[in-house]
Design a protein around this nucleic acid. Structure first.
Length: 515
RNA sequence: GCCUCUCUAGCUCAAUGGUAGAGCAGUGGACUUUUAAUCCAUUGGUUCUGGGUUCGAGCCCCAGGGGAGGCACCA
């Protein structure tokens, strides 16, 4: 940001590059110089932006095939490769450049004697950042560096803007997140994080497909907010003249599909919540939700462990990750512990949502936990859990048995009517996922919705309302079902070992750039 | 929304309230096995913006903007 107004937009105003009369050498002058090269190339009948280039190998494939060569070997193996010029070492009649494609990098060995005077001088005009296509033979240098002894180097796309520092890269977070393209060009870690993200999602799809899950797509525009306690983004449909909400969850739609008999469904869903940003939150994020008929929370806890450990294996090649300096094997069984037990230990007071509300409020007051008047014991216990315990959960853990009051879509615990058969997965102090035995009794669901409605009317901006269509669906009969949601962004954070969600979202939400 | 930090050349960073600098990139030159190539020379600045204090402000003060971290929010 804060760069000068672009005064080089009109290439006609730019002189030839070698006249030595360019004013200054700031960004504008640098762009003018490069645009001058583009013009000169066109004047000479060349095309600085050709339509295509055929490769025989990616650079990674080259390294796989010839990476073992001893130093000082010249093969007769012909390759055509392409990449961006990342480094350039000019020693007179010999130029070394390092080009990089998605799969790796390789050195070009460019000799004036091989390519001829004219092409050699054209190659000297190439800049860091230019895309080039190369034909040549495979060789290694005396020091053993795998190289392409280049017969021809053609420009595939001229870079007009200089790359960030070739050694220090790009550190400024503002620029890194706004200009992710520049971040990806120079920061290996950025590329790695998004490869891990891809591998994670691909792994989920494979695991779920192997279990007979069907991937579905449900509406992003919802007429009602449901499936999570969250503030929605609102929008408006013009011709229908109606308010719509960007989804805060996909739960209620996926369970309609279970009613319809689809048995095992999942969706990898971009989800929107109108909340502040932080190292753990972005207003739009990605959740995987799945629902499985005929099972309960036990099945989906097992699936949770399998999905995450398999994703780690697929993305990292290991199930061991480092969290807060501790080596943790995600493949070890995840401990299970009730929320009320965490809260009880954390406060030193035995807590249960059946307790008199006054007693629970007193514990909250003793621990400086703010309490709204309308909150019941269950909600307060959750707040106490968050205050006393949440941040100290490091290894993946199922926190179970959430009070019924805070779980309007979860089925009541078969052994305790004040609790639900619900779990949240916590890792590194963050919530990673959430699942439960699904409430499928339409009468009870209506009663829970009505409690939500009451909370909403009492001022809870995140409470839901009665979703009549969802009740109607349940009235047709939903089989016993287990459901699960996993935050993809947070899982990728865990696997990539990064502390900010912005490191795993390509284009995180930012304020518009000031001009 | 609140608090703290931060914003200087294309990039990475310096600069007691006293002439805005370096490295890389760029430009000119040397070099046929370099590896962030090296060596010599060299261009480049509205110090985020607007006010103020001061003989003098990149630096101090006020207001605004962007970003980061923390808090709040996030069942």
């Amino acid at each position: 940001m804060n760069e000068q107004p672009d005064t080089t937009a009109d290439p006609q105003s730019v002189g030839p590059p070698a006249d030595g009369q360019l004013s200054g050498s700031g960004l504008a002058a640098e762009k003018a110089r490069r645009l001058g090269l583009v013009d000169a190339m066109r004047d000479a009948g060349g095309n600085p932006y050709p339509y295509r280039f055929d490769r025989s190998h990616t650079l990674g494939e080259m390294r796989e095939t010839w990476g073992h060569l001893e130093p000082g070997i010249e093969t007769a193996d012909v390759v055509t490769v392409a990449g961006r010029i990342m480094l350039k070492r000019d020693s007179g009649k010999l130029v070394f450049t390092t080009i990089r494609d998605r799969s790796g990098d390789v050195q070009l060995f460019i000799s004036k004697a091989v390519v001829g005077d004219d092409e050699f001088s054209a190659i000297k005009d190439l800049d860091l950042g230019d895309w080039v296509g190369v034909a040549g033979t495979v060789m290694t240098t005396r020091k053993g560096e795998l190289s392409v002894k280049s017969d021809s180097v053609v420009l595939l796309s001229k870079a007009i803007r200089p790359m960030p520092d070739k050694w220090h890269g790009l550190n400024d977070t503002d620029t890194r997140f706004r200009q992710r393209y520049a971040d990806l060009i120079v920061n290996e870690n950025a590329r790695r994080n998004f490869e891990i993200r891809h591998e994670t999602v691909a792994s989920f799809r494979r695991t779920l497909a192997s279990k007979g899950f069907i991937e579905v797509e449900t509406p992003v525009l919802h007429p009602e907010v449901g499936g999570a306690h969250a503030r929605p983004f609102t929008t408006h449909h013009n011709t229908l003249d109606m308010e719509l909400y960007l989804r805060v969850a996909v739960e209620l739609y996926l369970k309609r599909l279970i009613v319809g008999g689809m048995e095992r469904v999942f969706e990898i869903a971009r989800t929107f919540r109108n909340e502040g940003t932080s190292t753990r939150h972005n207003p739009e994020f990605t959740m995987m939700e799945l629902y499985q008929a005929f099972g309960d929370w036990n099945e989906v806890m097992d699936i949770s462990e399998e999905l995450v450990t398999t994703a780690a294996r697929d993305a990292l090649g290991t199930t061991v990750v480092e969290i807060r300096g501790e080596q943790i094997d995600l493949a070890d069984p995840w401990p299970r512990k009730r929320m009320i037990d965490y809260a009880s230990e954390g406060t030193g007071v035995e807590l249960h949502p059946s307790m008199p509300i006054a007693d629970v409020r007193k514990v909250a007051a003793d621990h400086d936990v703010f309490v709204e008047d309308r909150w019941g014991a269950g909600k307060i216990i959750e707040e106490l859990f968050e205050k006393t315990s949440e941040s100290s959960i490091v290894r993946p853990t199922f926190v179970t048995g959430h009070p019924t009051e805070i779980s309007p879509l979860a089925r009541v615990d078969r052994n305790d009517p004040f609790l639900t058969e619900r779990f949240e997965i916590f890792v590194d102090g963050r919530e990673l996922g959430n699942g439960y035995s699904e409430l499928n009794d339409p009468v009870e669901q209506r009663a829970r919705f009505e409690d939500e409605q009451a909370a909403k009317e009492a001022g809870d901006a995140e409470a839901g309302s009665v979703d009549e269509d969802y009740i109607r669906a349940l009235e047709y009969g939903m089989p016993p079902t287990g459901g699960l949601g996993i935050g993809i962004d947070r899982l990728v954070m865990l696997l990539a070992g990064v502390d900010s969600i912005k490191e795993v979202i390509l284009f995180p939400t930012l304020r518009p750039e000031a001009h």
